[in-house]
């Protein structure tokens, strides 16, 4: 994993798009169960991440991504 600043940036995207408290954005949190995010929320979240980190995430890469930790791994793998 990358440094704290990277995770902070990731977390602020989640807080902004998913409107959840920052302390709920932890690696083991599941998007649908813990963060109450539906499929459109995830699309918006990924868009926010793409913009914040200047990366491109293909739809196929999101297969199986269910938790904050998995999404964060995906982002950092592209940095």
């Amino acid at each position: 994993m990358a440094d704290d600043a990277t995770f902070d940036k990731f977390r602020s995207c989640a807080v902004e798009v998913l409107q959840v408290p920052a302390d709920k954005v932890i690696p083991e949190a599941s998007f649908s169960g813990d963060l109450d995010a539906d499929s459109l929320d995830l699309v918006e979240f990924v868009m926010a991440l793409e913009e914040a980190f200047e990366i491109t995430v293909d739809e196929s890469e999101l297969q199986g991504v269910e938790t904050v930790g998995q999404a964060y791994e995906l982002v950092t793998s592209k940095l």
Binding site: L40, V43, E44, M47, E50
Partner: peptide, 13 residues
């Protein structure tokens, strides 16, 4: 400003 990939999936609903 940002292109088609940034258009919100919420636009239609």
């Amino acid at each position: 400003a940002k292109g088609a990939r940034r258009v919100s999936p919420r636009l239609v609903p």
